[in-house]
Nucleic acid binder design. Structure first.
Lengths: 204, 204
DNA sequence: AAAAAAATAGCCCTTACGGGCTATAACAAT
DNA sequence: ATTGTTATAGCCCGTAAGGGCTATTTTTTT
């Protein structure tokens, strides 16, 4: 039986996580917190095997939360929860002590298998992030940082699915022109001329 | 006596492989190529039992090389050579027809035993990759075979670099219209509408 | 020999893409 | 206070991309 605690301030997604974890008899929910402050008080007293923590919590971020409690509950593994894959914050979280992450929008099965993979010593993450971690281990400084903004990375992640500008605009609730502008800025910063080159460079 | 050919563009590592293989009286080097193009010409005429191929070769990748020659020399087994274990490319290579891989940095003994294991019907790889392969077997039956022609795969590989139709046409010495036609056929067969979707589907 | 598949190439058409601009509001840094 | 950054949004423009056709030659399969 794998015990799990959740720290997520969005009520809707916290409930979803709760159900997904609770649905599987291999897992048992210990706690479900809606803020880092709440978690800070209780999670040390009642440490789970796996703590699923939203990377973007109000006031105290998920990364800071980990930094504070990790040394006090070394047996607990941290699974970050992030809106965007390949976000720089994910990398920071891993450096801070997280062991893997799930992306919001993952299926129930993906979430459950991420928890299991983590518990079994694995590290669920994208190849891009994995390589950055390996580079770090090999002593290479965190190169490959093209200083894309979070929004730009988000747009890029949609480009990587083959979506049209129009589709991305609707998805993000912004205008087509804004999407185009983000792309232009991305291409400029990566010194490329089109989406495929951008994806190759960013995911290198 | 197991015959071995090597395709590796890094001089240093190619020499290392040569020595490691040559040192063992059970093996015999047939050829040692420094590019996929060289290998393409000669390896079909003089096929080895085992071909050790670097996964990242210039211009034509090791994966593409396998796709091109595998059907012509079905008795040859392919051992990929990769910098990082568990790379997605390794998985792609296995789907393309490789039977195992070694990691750069392996010891002489590890390399030799990988070759022997391969020759004896084994498949040297990490548990992670092995699991992906098993998942593929348990899941959908090699869904990756979209029956693309060699030429189409070649065009797709250039698309994956972010090249323009015009550039691909010049590279292959054919007209822009022909490149467009190949792409249309690729998209039709993969049931997608653009190059990024095609690449995602083909490399899935 | 006949049929099928693959590679070649052209035409027409619409639209998505990429690049050059400017501009504003919100916010952060200096 | 001023500067810089980010996200937003618009405009104009040329071209690349993608889709629907037909057609010829070569290669492969039956």
């Amino acid at each position: 039986m794998i015990t799990v605690s959740i720290v997520e301030d969005h009520d809707q997604y916290r409930d979803l996580l709760y159900q997904v974890i609770n649905d599987n008899p291999e897992f048992q929910i210990l706690d479900s917190f809606s803020s880092a402050e709440e978690a800070l008080k209780s999670i040390i007293i009642n440490p789970p095997d796996i703590a699923i923590i939203d990377i973007k919590l109000k006031s105290l971020s998920g990364i800071e939360l980990i930094q504070r409690i990790k040394s006090k509950i070394p047996q607990t593994l941290f699974l970050m929860c992030t809106a965007y894959q390949n976000n720089e914050n994910v990398f920071t979280a891993l450096k801070a002590g997280a062991s893997g992450y799930i992306v919001k929008g993952s299926s129930a099965e993906e979430i459950q298998s991420a928890v299991k993979e983590l518990y079994n010593g694995g590290a669920p993450m994208s190849p891009y992030i994995a390589k950055k971690v390996i580079n770090l281990l090999h002593g290479k400084e965190d190169q490959n940082n093209y200083d894309l903004t979070e929004r730009e990375i988000e747009v890029l992640s949609h480009l990587s699915k083959g979506l049209l500008y129009k589709e991305i605009a609707d998805l993000l609730g912004i205008s087509l022109n804004t999407v185009k502008n983000h792309c232009k800025n991305i291409y400029k910063r990566l010194h490329v001329q089109n989406r495929v080159e951008a994806l190759n460079k960013f995911n290198a």
